[in-house]
Amino acid sequence: MNAIEIANLTKTYGAQRAVDDVSLSVPDGGVCGLLGPNGAGKSTTFKCLLTLARPTSGTIEVAGAPVSPKTFEYLAYVPETSALFSKYTVADHIEATRRAYGTFDVKRAAELAATFKLDSKKRIGKLSKGQRTAVAIVLAFAIRPRVLVLDEPASGLDPMFQRAVLDLIIDASAGGASVLFSSHQIGQVERAADSIAVLKGGKLVLRGDIDTLKGDEKIVEAIFSSDAPSPNGLANDPRVRRIERSGRILRLHVASDAAGVANALQSLAPKTVDVFDLSLEDIFLGAVSDGVA
């Protein structure tokens, strides 16, 4: 059973399709990194998942059931922007959360607050953006959730605390929790996540297991003795994501079967054909860029 199952989710605001037929799932115990440029629909997807917005169409299930208040007994959410009560202190928030959750771990909350160097007597309104994010993270992890939904959980944090967030996600995952998190930092995603989903303009443009994607997605590079010819036969090949030509070099970003594509290129009589690995960042950029470059 999947911890999170989003099927054909569409959310429109007037004429604008904020999320357009997105399907993604996080298997039980999996960690999925949601990537995409600003305005790609990540936060809207989260809002629909958490019943904060009503989907225009599509279905969403958490642990095999539609999302209800019962879901929130074991699901924790860290929103992108601080949504805490600015007039109340960190300690007030900890107390309010303790009262709302049977699973709240007071000792853990104190440890985490110390990790992020939070002064529990301070009002939220007096904290920096990063500190507010840290409070939300402390509250989310202290309830020892089975499902975590984190929208840009490291935004505004300094590098040391970003690392702490990464450690928390990995620790939660090792404890069996399922995680869906968005991030602008590929470095975090390639460490913490085992799968990714990439949104662009509300549409899902790539999803899959990171290691499988790294195994499949390659750059096939051919060098010619004179100007590189255009590989007409491969322009619409489903294996090819993108074609770049510059001078004597022809570079193809392929989504699968790099060896097959390399073979096909031999017909153009290049001097050399090489296959290169792609980092997750290359794969991400390849997915969000606009076709032929």
Binding site: L50, T51, L52, S68, P69, K70, F72, E73, L75, Y77, P79, T81, A83, L84, F85, S86, A100, Y101, A136
Partner: peptide, 16 residues
């Protein structure tokens, strides 16, 4: 409502 993203994602229905 200013804290809806925090306050609404709780094990209590909004009506309640």
């Amino acid at each position: 409502n200013e804290s809806a993203l925090f306050a609404f994602v709780k094990p209590t229905s909004r009506e309640r």
